[in-house]
Design a binder for these strands. Structure first.
Length: 891
RNA sequence: GGUUUAAUAGCUCAGUUGGUUCAGAGCACCUGCCUUACAAGCAGGGGGUCCAAGGUUCGAAUCCUUGUUAGACCACCA
């Protein structure tokens, strides 16, 4: 620690030794907003590039998944903006009916208000208040992350225009005959008291009990039929027992009736091949009201339906017994009573699956109810086709299979929800039950008057359906509705920005949302909603568990930003986030991101501290500049290639290596003047240019630090931001200089290795002798080698060099002259190993080239490369053999 | 049960059309270093039977078959 302080005192200018993101992030974000750098409007001269944000829940707060997801979107949009496209990232939030309504209900409860005691209108007033107060926090949090959304375009799925779009959609689909109302077995959430779609249900494996119950057979004294059930409380709703017709054990009971225990109601014994003989007892109780399969069995056998549960999961009068009890309490009680009455044969531990509500966690009850449905078979066809033929591309493409199996087996979509927070279904009922679907009550009235000739009707005679629409029934319009494309399908925005380019979201909502947006896209615009879907992985903890509030294993994203800086968090997350792969979060990743920021910062500190001497000329630096530009050009090519394949992580890693290894460790070391020495003008200017380019390349990933440094490197106009600077374009790659430098770096590495092995201080300059036929090559790099490896002046020879450590690169031999003993044995061993390897390699290559089929079948350039490798190996072997002979001679 | 994806260093993962000396990166580990940009750092190093067994091929981490293990999705389990 004391050293750190001293170093700081010595530094030329008193700028922070470590990068301090807290000081600059707010400053630059404000600057970006004030100058409207993220704002976009249709511009016919520019190519549009648009992304719509997956709208987070309006009451939600930022979690790690959002961080990853939105960072990727920001990278894409910032890069497109720098590439001169008209980049538009539309932000917004989702009203999330179940989740939000649950929160409002809880809030009201705290204030002593029960939902059932207030009217719908009052409730909605509270809900909007709640939304205005707590809603949209997440959008502010996205700003902390650096998200470059066009904030003036912020949308909310319940705002008037989007609300109308949803209503409009419903009416149009109803009129097309795509929406119908019907009684179906639905997933019922007894806590939320609403129907749920299959996608909103989560299956959980639990240990349950399987109860074996015996039903007395009527007219056969002492005979029983035993069934196995996990839900003994539903026996009061039984309307039959069912066995497989081929089951010989039960042949005698075909056509008989049995008596429900405790209740003493008679029910028939029916037969159906649906029953599996070897599960449980092979005898099934049929409860049409409370089980989907039983329901279907009931329809087939024309059985009555007895629904013994109310909306809240309590037993009603139809149950006769345990009326008013909660279903789970009733289960405990009936088991006790059955045991006492002797009808409980046995209990078994049983691994079972229960369905629970995604939002409330309540155990789902299959329930018959009257709901609204959207027919999916026809409307989903283009959505399947256009993903399968790659008009819309999924990244990674493995999700195509999952997508197909879902789309080929779609069920009609239950779109009604028994909630208040959401778009109320625009269906109006006359007193006789006639349904009139219209955008408003007024229109419905007019329709009733004209179509049914009921001119005496008034608005009071119409009752609107109390239900609201599934949240996804509004979010499936998102890419269209944010541009107002439902009501005004030809407006300037939608014509320009739609179809959007890329969608970034998690695979968990591929069907909920992505598939349905595609459906809506083709239905309403006859066109895809986006061209590419980038599916991010799920962020998990180190043990691979999904991050969740209940487990408490998720770090607070805002604390992370505070601690490591937004750029550190962004780049850290992306270091290991290939598309579709889950990301095992570890603070180590973010630390790496922060360290990267710090590395860049320190490179800047070095450059910033230089003084320029206009009279100075350092020729060798030009080689370094040329080399780095070649490396940078190659990297830009790689980065663009990665981006074209959505390899966002790989692109970042390429840049990371370029900055850390090539720029900092090599380039800056090559051109760096000695301490307190000035730098020449040409090198300085080239370095500033390189630095600016690097900042631009990194900007999409690390917007804040790159803006800070880019602004500091040169004088900029007030409204000139790196946000809108031009993304670098690759020049031609000078492969010759890259190859030459590879040799130089290998040499430097070998010298350093020797120094390390001999425990020599880096301060001691080592004498280097080179035996080569290509003196010109090394000649031009002498200064660089001296600087990087700290050698004395380099000499050349054709003779053997005594008292030295030697090694071979290509066909050249190098000697480092050392005082004292040289370990000849060790040197011999190393050389022998190297020789063996090369001889082996040579043999393999020779064999390959001797193989006619290889020479005939392989690509010509490949064969040529093999020949070159063989030649290299031969010359290296020759050099090594000479070296070994000499070493033996010394011995 | 059906479909599907994967298995590469201690950990997390790259490895793109089968062909560069292809077996790689980061983290972790080991050795040395407070060298005036950076110890959040520098220089160097060790570490893998590419799940197994067959097959195709001039050539296999890569393609095929079978098996093992793990995950995902869908369906069903009274």
């Amino acid at each position: 620690m004391p050293f750190t302080l001293i170093t700081t005192l010595y530094s030329i200018k008193m700028i922070s030794k470590t990068y301090a993101p807290q000081e600059i992030e707010a400053k630059w974000y404000k600057y970006w907003l004030e100058n409207k750098f993220f704002a976009s409007k249709p511009n016919p001269d520019k190519e549009p590039y648009s992304i719509v944000i997956p709208p987070p829940n309006v009451t939600g707060v930022l979690h790690m998944g959002h961080m990853l997801n939105n960072t990727i979107q920001d990278v894409l949009i910032r890069k497109a903006r720098m590439e001169g496209k008209e980049a538009c990232w539309v932000p917004g939030t989702d009203h999330a009916s179940i989740a939000t309504e649950a929160k409002v209900v809880a809030m009201l409860k705290e204030r002593g208000i029960e939902k059932k005691d207030i009217s719908r209108e009052e409730f909605l007033i509270y809900a909007h208040e709640w939304k205005d107060k707590y809603g949209g926090i997440i959008l502010d949090q996205l700003q902390k992350l650096g998200a470059s959304c066009d904030w003036d375009r912020t949308r909310f799925t319940m705002e008037p225009s989007l609300y109308e779009a949803v209503i409009d959609t419903f009416v149009r689909l109803y009129n097309k005959g795509q929406i119908y109302r019907g009684v179906r077995m639905v997933n019922w959430d007894p806590l939320g008291k609403t129907a749920l779609s299959d996608e909103e249900v989560i299956e959980k494996e639990i240990m349950a009990k399987l109860y074996y119950l015996k039903y007395p057979v009527s007219g056969m004294e002492g005979e029983f039929m035993t069934i196995a059930t996990t839900r003994p409380e539903t026996i009061m709703a039984d309307t039959a027992l069912c066995v497989n017709p081929n089951d010989e054990r039960y042949l005698a009971y075909h056509g008989k009736t049995v008596v429900i225990p405790l209740l003493n109601r008679e029910i028939p014994v029916i037969t159906d091949e649906y029953v599996t003989m070897d599960f449980g007892t092979g005898c099934l109780k049929v409860t049409p009201a409370h089980d989907l399969n039983d329901y279907e069995l009931g329809i087939k056998h024309k059985l009555p339906v007895i629904d013994i549960l109310d909306d809240g999961g309590f037993l009603n009068e139809k149950a006769v017994l345990y009326v008013g009890q909660d279903r789970f309490a009733a289960r405990r009680n009936i088991v006790k009573d059955l045991e006492e009455s002797g009808h409980l044969v046995k209990m078994e531990e049983y691994k079972s699956i229960v369905k629970t509500s995604e939002r409330t966690g309540a155990v789902i009850e299959p329930k018959l109810s009257l709901q609204w449905f959207l027919k999916m078979d026809e409307i989903s066809k283009p959505a399947l086709e256009n993903v399968m033929n790659d008009n819309i591309k999924l990244y990674p493409s493995k999700f195509k299979n999952t997508y197909r199996s879902w789309m080929e087996n779609v069920h009609d979509w239950c779109i009604s929800r028994q909630l208040w927070w959401g778009q109320q279904i625009p269906a109006f009922y006359l007193q006789d039950g006639t349904i009139i679907v219209a955008k408003t009550k007024r229109e419905a009235l007019r329709k009733a008057q004209h179509e049914y000739l009921l001119f005496a009707l008034t608005e009071e005679d119409l009752t609107q359906d109390p239900n609201v629409l599934d949240t996804w029934f509004s979010s499936w319009l998102w890419p269209i509705s944010v541009f107002d494309g439902i009501q005004n399908p030809d407006n300037e925005d939608i014509s320009y920005y739609y179809p959007t380019n890329d969608l970034v979201t998690g695979p968990d909502i591929l069907f909920f949302w992505v598939a349905r947006m595609i459906i809506a896209g083709y239905e309403w615009r006859g066109e895809l909603p986006f061209r590419n879907v980038y599916l991010t992985g799920i962020v998990r903890d180190k043990q691979g568990r999904k991050m969740s509030k209940s487990l408490g294993n998720s770090p607070d994203p805002l604390e992370l930003i505070e601690q490591y800086g937004a750029d550190g968090v962004r780049s850290g997350l992306l270091f290991s986030a290939p598309a579709g792969n889950d990301l095992l979060y570890d603070d180590k990743l973010i630390e790496q991101g922060r360290n990267f920021c710090n590395k860049i910062w320190n490179a800047y500190r070095l450059v910033e501290g230089w003084e320029v001497n206009v009279n100075l000329v350092v020729n060798s630096n030009q080689l370094g500049i040329d080399w780095f530009n070649a490396k940078m050009n190659q990297t830009i090519i790689d980065v663009q290639d990665h981006f074209s394949k959505f390899r966002i992580s790989d692109a970042l890693l390429s840049l990371y290596n370029l900055v850390w290894d090539d720029f900092c460790s090599k380039y800056l070391e090559i051109i760096k003047p000695a301490y307190e020495q000035p730098i020449d003008k040409a090198t300085f200017e080239a370095t500033i240019q390189i630095f600016e380019k690097l900042m631009k390349l990194l900007h999409p990933y690390m917007p804040f630090i790159t803006e800070e440094i880019w602004q500091a490197l040169a004088t900029r106009a007030d409204n000139e931001s790196i946000c809108r600077a031009t993304f670098p374009i690759a020049g031609t790659v000078d492969t010759k200089i890259v190859a030459d430098f590879d040799i130089v770096f290998e040499l430097v590495s070998k010298i350093r290795d020797t120094r390390n092995a001999k425990q020599l201080s880096p301060k001691i300059a080592l004498p280097l002798v080179i035996k080569t036929e290509n003196k010109a090559l090394y000649g031009q790099f002498e200064e660089i080698i001296q600087k990087l490896a700290n050698t004395e002046s380099i000499t050349y020879t054709n003779e053997k060099v005594e008292s030295s450590i030697s090694f071979v690169i290509k066909s050249d031999e190098f000697f480092i002259i050392l005082e004292g003993e040289i370990d000849v044995e060790a040197a011999l061993e190393t050389a022998q190993k190297d020789l063996e390897y090369n001889v082996g390699f040579k043999k393999a290559t020779e064999a390959k080239l001797a193989n006619e089929r290889f020479v005939a079948n392989a690509k010509p350039e490949l064969v040529e490369r093999e020949r070159q490798k063989l030649a290299d190996a031969e010359s290296k072997i020759k050099a090594l053999e000479e070296m070994i002979l000499r070493l033996k001679g010394v011995k």
